[in-house]
Write a protein that binds this DNA or RNA. Structure first.
Ligand code: FES
Ligand code: FES
Lengths: 148, 148
DNA sequence: TTCAAATGCAACATCGTAAGTTACATGAAA
DNA sequence: TTTCATGTAACTTACGATGTTGCATTTGAA
């Protein structure tokens, strides 16, 4: 089953942008992500609508983060992307007349709802600043390793 | 994203079989599930390999449950189906050289691993007997409602 | 013995959706 | 005015569950 990797993509792009001074172009980001600039624009467009990033056209244009890194959570990004389905497993029939299927659906829905609540809670706890800090930590560790 | 509904399907089929005395044919199950008999055979075949059901060919053949309802958990069924991916969201690149992407992947993987552990724990707690009991409860309630 | 009913299985076709691609319009700075 | 950038529509591709067709095989009953 093909997985939706847009959250992963925008996180990579945002951290990349956080490391840069000026705006970053779709072409640059596309090369980072190993994809196409149009895909970057399409995906980042969701974040622009949510006010998380801004884009400038023309010379010296590109994408900028227009929010405080500490204020943007993974949950907000997930919502900005349209809250795509979290699970690759689901019910066969969403509104069954059959009582047996209702029992099955209820059991699965309860379980997945609990897992989704957990995911959203964790997503709410993680900000871009957290990830940037983790990056800085790993970056320093990698530099230390290279010195020896 | 198209969802994998095989777990839902086999649960429906198994409960249907639990209500019946003799074996149930793929045709009957297919009509219950609103699908094709070949799809039923293909999907139930996984459960046969796991020893959860047995199939008989020829006249008076069909599918039987070959285990105690109280012994079969949703987790076993999920494993019998080949442990399909639970999540529709994933990393863009699974083994990135880029340190930024490693940070992103680690954050997402940790979160999803926690959610998957929760799901598997819940799956381990639910048996076919539990679902059958839930069905009996709802069935009785529905009959009571009809009487008034 | 013969026939009908059932599974087993291979070889396709279908479908939905994220991702990728092409093409062109638009805007901004040099 | 030229160049660099985004904005967007339209199309193709990739992929895996699902759906379908066809036929071989097994089994019980007439
Ligand atoms: S940060 Fe740009 S390639 Fe990973
Ligand atoms: S139990 Fe067979 S139709 Fe739902």
């Amino acid at each position: 089953m093909k997985r939706d990797s847009r959250l992963s993509s925008v996180l990579h792009a945002l951290l990349h942008m956080a490391e840069q001074d000026g705006p970053v172009t779709s072409d640059t980001l596309a090369e980072c992500l190993g994809t196409n600039p149009v895909v970057v624009r399409r995906t980042m467009g969701y974040l622009r609508e949510a006010g998380i990033v801004a884009s400038d056209r023309g010379h010296a244009g590109g994408w900028r983060i227009s929010a405080d890194l500490a204020d943007v959570t993974l949950r907000q990004l997930h919502e900005a992307l349209g809250e795509p389905a979290m699970f690759a497993i689901g019910n066969r029939n969403e509104n069954p007349a059959c009582l047996v299927e209702q029992v099955v659906n209820a059991a699965l829905e309860d379980t997945f709802a609990e897992a989704e609540a957990l995911l959203l809670e964790r997503f709410s706890d993680i900000t871009l600043a957290d990830l940037a800090a983790d990056f800085a930590r790993r970056h320093a560790a990698a530099r230390r390793r290279r010195k020896h």
